[in-house]
Amino acid sequence: MDAPLVRMRGVWKRYRMGKTEVPALRNIDLEIPAGEFVVFLGPSGSGKTTLLNIVGGLDTVSEGEVLVNGRVLAAQSEAALTVYRRETIGFVFQFFNLVPTLTAKENVELVAQLAKSPRDPGEVLRSVGLAGREHHFPSAMSGGEQQRVAIARALVKRPALVLADEPTGNLDIETAIIVLRVLRDAQRADGHGVLLVTHNQDIARMADRVVRLHGGSLAGVEEVAHPVEPEELQW
């Protein structure tokens, strides 16, 4: 195996709740190769979003080491983490987090202007199936369309890794499948990795690799020999 894109060694994350410390992650050791579609699977409170946030440079570890693309995240300053997120990561959120006062295309352009060599926002929007919807505001779009704008926004800066936190959690199954298809196609076309957080067991069937979490601990990592296509999913 080539050098992994993400490497974690002895990662702990503890939150302080008053006088007590609550561990959110316990001693995680994990390696994720580049270019894979990886699903973090686990019930609510299992630590999957915390793990995603740490990989995305949104949160820091309490103990242990995280390397992404050979870069040690724990040692990064806030400014360096900002640059890291700008250059390496694309985020997709459950509630889309679009800027409601910007059109679909403007939302994508907002992020494109951060990148050194961004893709064309219009082309990215077309690639996620939103041709003709570029000039619509989020309030005039369906949930699925909004999530596709959010994906386009993540893809436009050519990230090495797309992090998607429950991207279908707010969508019906038909729309969710469209969104998953977009993510899968983009991953295959551009070769970037996707880390997708979900509690939906079925979605794990389309992953190249599934990372199971339970109670903040790693419950298992499995490679999926024959990932299914999104359209084959059912829940």
Partner: peptide
């Protein structure tokens, strides 16, 4: 807050 969070997550500096 959500927008700020997204902007910061996307790499906009403070």
């Amino acid at each position: 807050r959500g927008q700020v969070g997204f902007l910061r997550a996307s790499g906009f500096p403070p």
